[in-house]
């Protein structure tokens, strides 16, 4: 289990990015984190990944305190961050350098097949489209079979069509290995498609404002009434988190937060 206990982060310049975030995530659970800009979503992920240390509280994976990157925790960033001097296959196998070559090759081939990019194994990252590059990044993160995978707005730079496609692919990959996913996004639809729970954060300092269970069977139909209902609940929670005075009827389609998020 991944436990965050009153995690806070104050930067040296005095800015409090995160304050008292407490969260328990079960193995295999998908937690989506949404919130306006500056609410500490990325700071939270950096603390969980071990890239930055929290200034208050602690992050624990099965009792181990996370102070630096952990082999059981993988990260997918907003940008693919592929190494441009390595072929696609070598990028995917980057975290397997200590394994025998046959094993590495087999696992890389398998991972590439699962993101549908087998034929791109030999090309350079520069030759990939944005969506393909992010799929390679997903393969690179999953090939080491981490128990926790952190995703920091991984699809935010992609067009809506590619984004929906990758959300479905990610769910397919998740179903294979069942890692714990913490998925930060600013896209409410994405949060509801993916998450077992949606954590709504509020800014200055970043805190958990609300938590919404999404009790819908997968695959989730983005057009269904239940989906729409969940979406309105999340949007209403976002409005409250931003202290909007708009009294949102949770059945109303348009909310201030929904507009603010998409603008």
């Amino acid at each position: 289990m991944l436990s965050l206990d009153r995690v806070g982060k104050t930067y040296p310049n005095g800015v409090r990015a995160l304050d008292g975030v407490t969260l328990d995530v079960e193995l295999g659970e998908i937690v989506a984190v949404v919130g306006g800009s500056g609410c500490g979503k990325s700071t939270l992920l950096r603390a969980v990944s071990g890239l930055d240390r929290p200034t208050q509280g602690s992050v624990k994976l099965d009792g181990d305190t996370i102070l630096e990157p952990h082999e059981q925790i993988g990260v997918i960033f907003q940008e693919p961050r592929l190494l441009p001097w390595l072929s696609v296959a070598d990028n995917v196998g980057f975290g397997l350098a200590d394994r025998p070559k046959e094993e590495r090759d087999a696992r890389v081939a398998n991972a590439l097949a699962r993101v549908g990019l087998s034929e791109k194994a030999g090309v350079w990252p520069r030759e990939l489209s944005g969506g393909q590059a992010q799929r390679v990044a997903i393969a690179r993160a999953l090939v080491t079979r981490p128990r926790v995978l952190l995703l920091d707005e991984p699809f935010s730079a992609l067009d809506a069509f590619t984004r929906a496609d990758l959300q479905d692919q990610l769910l397919g990959l998740w179903a294979d290995q069942k890692p714990t996913l913490i998925h930060v996004t600013h896209d409410v639809d994405e949060a509801i498609v993916l998450g077992d729970r949606v954590i709504v954060m509020r800014p200055r300092p970043g805190r958990v404002a609300d938590e919404i269970e999404i009790d819908l069977p997968r695959p989730r139909d983005r057009q269904s009434a239940a989906f729409d209902f969940a979406k309105r609940r999340v949007l209403a929670a976002l409005d409250r988190s931003l202290d909007r005075t708009v009294s949102v009827d949770e059945r109303e389609t348009k909310t201030a937060a929904g507009q603010a998020m998409w603008w």
């Binding site: 890239l51 630096e68 990157p69 082999e71 993988g74 960033f77 190494l83 980057f94 350098a97």
Partner: peptide
């Protein structure tokens, strides 16, 4: 820095 972070996530040694 972003590429260096990829190395950190995969827990490379200083030499690596």
């Amino acid at each position: 820095r972003k590429l260096v972070e990829v190395g950190r996530i995969f827990r490379l040694s200083d030499f690596a």
